[in-house]
């Protein structure tokens, strides 16, 4: 049953966001909601993927959320690095240099390649043009160590509302979506094929289409073949 549900979910994803069945009325206006809680399925798997390392290094690309810092660093013993990509995007938009984002992302991260155990990408790729998204995805793929995992969220709803979303961890199966103003709206909804192409060096291990109209995708970097 779960298998067939997953296949259907993926099929909807392949056919595009407009084919996504309507969610319940409470979910349909997600971009207008300032704060709401939604279930998450990929987070638990992401956490399980971190267990292989002792004191894993985690990269959080969202804005800092105090509760998440406590959760990852204090409760789980992760070393957490916060790199707010939304701020980078806003800065480039305000300065009128959005076209420089691909180059910027190519040299954005100070970490050595293959040193990061997990990346919380959240939904930042939705806010980027294709070249910038590709540059960021390539950089992130390079940072991950073999067997490291990356959690990405991709909206399947077309929205021109200029808001970012903070994902506040309530527990390992619940996230609070908290919107806040952005300089730029989401650029496009990425299809399954687009997502896979962006992270061509990683393997998709799980993909869930949630009622919040967010696709949660978990990637893992394959270990080198011996």
């Amino acid at each position: 049953m779960a298998e067939s549900t997953r296949l259907l979910t993926d099929l909807f994803g392949i056919l595009g966001p407009r084919r996504v069945p309507d969610a319940s009325p409470a979910d349909s206006s997600v971009t207008n909601v300032v704060e709401a809680s939604y279930p998450t399925k990929a987070l638990q798997k992401f956490l399980a993927g971190l267990q292989a390392s002792d004191g894993p290094l985690l990269l959080d690309l969202g804005p800092v959320v105090g509760g998440n810092v406590t959760f990852f660093a204090e409760q789980l013993g992760c070393r957490l690095r916060v790199e707010d990509i939304a701020k980078d995007i806003d800065g480039h938009v305000k300065d009128g240099i959005v076209d420089q984002l691909p180059e910027f992302f190519s040299n954005r991260f100070p970490q050595d390649p293959g040193t990061v155990d997990g990346i919380l990408c959240w939904d930042v790729l939705d806010y980027l043009d294709r070249p910038a998204a590709q540059a960021l995805a390539t950089s992130l793929s390079s940072l991950l160590r073999p067997d490291g995992c990356l959690l990405g969220f991709f909206s399947t709803a077309d929205s021109r509302e200029a808001v970012y979303t903070k994902y506040v961890i309530v527990d390992d199966s619940t996230l609070k979506y908290r919107t806040y103003p952005a300089v730029r709206a989401r650029q496009r909804s990425l299809l399954n094929g687009d997502i896979i192409r962006l992270f061509k060096d990683l393997r998709v291990t799980d993909s869930f289409l949630m009622k919040s109209k967010v696709r949660e995708t978990l990637f893992r970097k394959p270990a080198p073949r011996r």
Binding site: E3, R6, D10, Q44, K45, L47, A48, G49, L50, Q51, F71, Q75, L76, I169, D171, D172, N192, G193, I195, I196, R203, V204, T205, D206, S207, T217, L218
Partner: peptide, 17 residues
Amino acid sequence: QPQQPHQQQQPQGQKVG
């Protein structure tokens, strides 16, 4: 509250795409 990673099971996910 969330569980710690070592208390969780290994991911049983399937390859998609």
